[in-house]
Amino acid sequence: MRGLLDGLVSAGTPARLLFVHAHPDDETLTTGVALAHHVARGDDVHVLTCTLGEEGEVIPPALAHLEGDGPALAAHRRGELAAAVAALGVTHHLLGAAGPHDAPAFRDSGMAGSAAAADPRAFAGVPLAVAAEAVGAVLDAVDPHVVVTYDAGGGYGHPDHVRTHEATRLAAASRGVPVLGVLVPLSWATQDREWLARSVPEGEGWVLPTAEHAYAANVVPDEVATRAVVDPSVVPVQEGALRAHATQVVLGAGWYALSNHHVFRLAGREAYALLDPDTGRPLPEGRP
């Protein structure tokens, strides 16, 4: 596979990257390896978060009172996010918030079918042009060489992830900025499933993947994922950022789990593809 920036930024030139995510924790769960890797390279790395995750489930019993209390959970997750991006060493932006303490323009829409989607500020429900304009304002301020976000399906179909992809792609296309989407090669999904079966403790309620496509819709044939960041050395940085997201993540030895007890491997690698600006589909770049 190519490197993340091959052919997009001149070799030896410090790059400016903008990663666009829907909720706090998505930045570390989905692109934590790339974020830490490019910070270590000396690149100028930015993260844009579109909502504060008001509809998230809360794992620790001591914080269970936050679940269902949107404003309280948003405030708490904002603090978690600040600690996570500090651990990663990136510059953070909150969509529609002019200052570090201002409220964002949009809120978490919840999973598909959630009552939260009816809120007038729900990110998935606002007109696409409005969402894209807000993302575009951050693009103009950051002026990135490359933007990174989800694939067209939002990774696993969450409405806010899909809207994040749509708004980011529209804003970037109008400015001529290339967009990379996160994918999972089928061979990696298979390897991770086998590793988790050997490595995760039994009898503790963890849910192991039983098939390559158990968790994510963005598992693709290997040839579709044309770019990658492979850097196991940054996993400790990613783990440090994950610890900050205590309401959402349980950290194990080389793996993490979400509130549904599904486990994922911390393999120190992430795959991507350059997306067609019109359709959002991965472009067939070849795999040198």
Rank of each mutant, 00 (worst) to 15 (best):
M1K: 07
L5G: 08
L5D: 06
G7F: 09
P14L: 09
R16P: 03
L17S: 10
L17A: 05
V20D: 03
V20S: 11
H21M: 05
D26Q: 03
L29I: 14
T31C: 14
L35A: 13
A36I: 03
H37E: 11
D44A: 12
D44N: 08
V45R: 02
V47D: 05
C50E: 01
E55Y: 00
V58G: 09
P60E: 11
L66C: 09
E67A: 15
A74N: 03
R77T: 01
R78V: 00
G79T: 02
L81F: 12
A82Y: 01
A87H: 04
A87D: 09
G96Y: 03
A98S: 14
A98T: 11
D102S: 14
D108V: 10
D108H: 03
S109T: 06
G110S: 14
A117K: 00
A118F: 04
P120R: 05
R121I: 00
R121Y: 00
F123S: 05
A124V: 01
V126W: 00
L128Q: 04
A129R: 12
A131S: 10
E133G: 14
V135Y: 05
G136R: 05
A137Q: 14
L139D: 00
L139I: 07
A141Y: 01
H145N: 11
V146K: 11
V147H: 01
T149H: 01
D151V: 00
A152I: 08
H158E: 08
H158T: 02
P159K: 01
D160W: 04
H161L: 08
H161N: 12
T164C: 15
E166G: 04
E166A: 15
A167G: 10
T168S: 14
A171K: 06
R175P: 12
G176L: 09
V177E: 03
V179F: 10
L180E: 06
G181E: 01
G181Q: 02
V182Y: 11
V182W: 13
V184Q: 10
V184M: 13
W188V: 14
Q191V: 14
E194Q: 12
L196C: 01
A197R: 12
R198E: 13
V200Y: 01
G203I: 11
G205S: 06
G205R: 02
L208R: 01
P209K: 03
A211E: 14
A214G: 06
Y215A: 10
Y215E: 13
Y215Q: 12
A216Q: 11
A217E: 07
V220G: 09
V220N: 12
P221L: 05
D222N: 05
E223S: 13
V224K: 10
A228I: 11
A228C: 15
P232H: 11
V234N: 08
V234W: 08
V234P: 09
V235N: 06
V235I: 11
P236L: 06
A241Q: 07
L242H: 00
A244W: 07
A244S: 15
A246R: 13
Q248I: 01
G252D: 10
A253N: 14
A257F: 07
V263G: 04
V263H: 08
F264H: 12
F264K: 05
R265L: 11
L266E: 02
E270T: 02
A271L: 01
Y272K: 02
Y272M: 09
L275C: 07
D278Y: 02
T279P: 06
R281H: 15
P284Q: 04
R287V: 15
